[in-house]
Design a protein around this nucleic acid. Structure first.
Length: 303
RNA sequence: GGUGUCGUAGCUCAGUUGGUAGAGCAACGGACUGAAAAUCCGUGUGUCACUGGUUCAAUUCCAGUCGACACCA
């Protein structure tokens, strides 16, 4: 092969747009493998509610990062970045093109651009800070961050508890300001990146979301969620499709209402995904039906 | 058929002692560096059922009409 350049082809887009099917056809065409960038399809115990590729689909193309984790495992985007880079080294030995497919924008970006390195905070620090949030409210966390890192305090969304907790965690673990360590530099990769966005007119997308939720219900979502009831406190299960069914199982809402809520929350999620991906101008957008155009586009660039 | 209550945003409802109206949810837009399907921020989109009357001014008061509900026949 004359051109030995390596290409990571990102297939991103909102949930239910049809990424899985397109990716499988593309990966088959280019005789390569798929890395999933979907922060919920990682979990082995969550299948129906995450619309994982089914066994037939998984049989067509080798997928990575599908169901490789237990919901009890601690995982984060930095681990994902490192593991994917390791895997890519191997895959690029025998393939010039590898697909990265998923809707988790932060995870996609971590692979493409990298994220800054921070030490893992001690678990007890995290629960200590959460305790403060619970007992004294967010204003206490704001006070703490203002004292420890006024620069980040000025820039951060101070009403967002997750952001405050994270910044405080880093400040207290490292003894240095979060803002000093958060360089936001794009890392160099030794492969080229092609970004493809998949989207549909909104009514069509929303229609597909509704149909997919109905299919999940028909294929046993309630049973799956019921079996995970003891673990509902886990972060992995703080997820659309699961939290609404928990409410139904608590008899707080009807099944009908739970289904409606899942559809609404999935639509909102899809919009947030589009906001994320639209921020980058690097995406070339297609409709999922434009398989030939997408194939030509990739071929043209990789030629 | 009679009496009563109600009719305000996409939905549930508040309100205006008469000066053309506002909450929650939805919707729409946005942010995002180790929880990210998470978390957070911003925006009111309206023939105040309809037709008349009183009034400088009616969504508000009055009458009628239509519709919903309840009770009485």
């Amino acid at each position: 092969m004359l051109n030995s350049a390596k290409y990571l082809v990102v297939i991103a887009g909102p949930t239910a747009v049809g990424k899985t099917d397109v990716a499988i056809q593309l990966a088959s065409h280019f005789k390569t493998e798929i890395i999933s960038a979907d922060s919920r399809q990682f979990y082995n115990e969550m299948s129906v509610g995450t619309a994982k590729p089914d066994t037939q689909q998984l049989g067509k193309v080798k997928h990575h990062f599908i169901g490789q984790l237990s919901i009890h495992a601690y995982y984060n985007v930095s681990k994902f970045e490192n593991e994917v880079l390791e895997l890519l080294k191997e895959l690029f030995i025998n393939h010039n093109i590898v697909f990265l497919v998923g809707g988790s924008g932060l995870y996609v970006d971590a692979v493409c651009n990298g994220i800054d390195d921070f030490p893992d905070p001690a678990p007890e620090l995290r629960s200590y800070l959460k305790g403060i949030l619970l007992d004294e409210g967010i204003s206490k966390l704001q006070e703490m961050l203002l004292a420890l890192d006024p620069e980040y305090f000025a820039a951060v969304d101070v009403n967002n508890p997750n952001r405050l907790l994270r910044a405080l965690e880093v400040c207290l673990t490292t003894g240095k300001k979060f803002s000093e360590q958060r360089l936001n530099n794009s890392k160099n990769r030794n492969f080229q990146i092609i970004k493809i966005g998949l989207n549909l007119p909104r009514p069509e997308l929303f229609n597909r979301i509704g149909q997919r939720v109905d299919t999940m219900i028909d294929t046993g979502l309630v049973n799956e969620v019921d079996s995970l009831l003891p673990f509902r406190h886990l972060n992995a299960l703080n997820t659309v499709g699961y939290k609404e069914i928990f409410e139904f199982l608590d008899e707080k809402i009807s099944l009908r209402q739970a289904i409606e809520n899942i559809k609404t929350n999935t639509r909102r999620y899809a919009k947030r995904q589009l906001t994320w991906f639209n921020r980058s101008s690097e995406y070339k957008w297609f409709e999922p039906s434009q398989l030939n155009e997408i194939t030509d586009y990739i071929t043209m660039i990789c030629r």
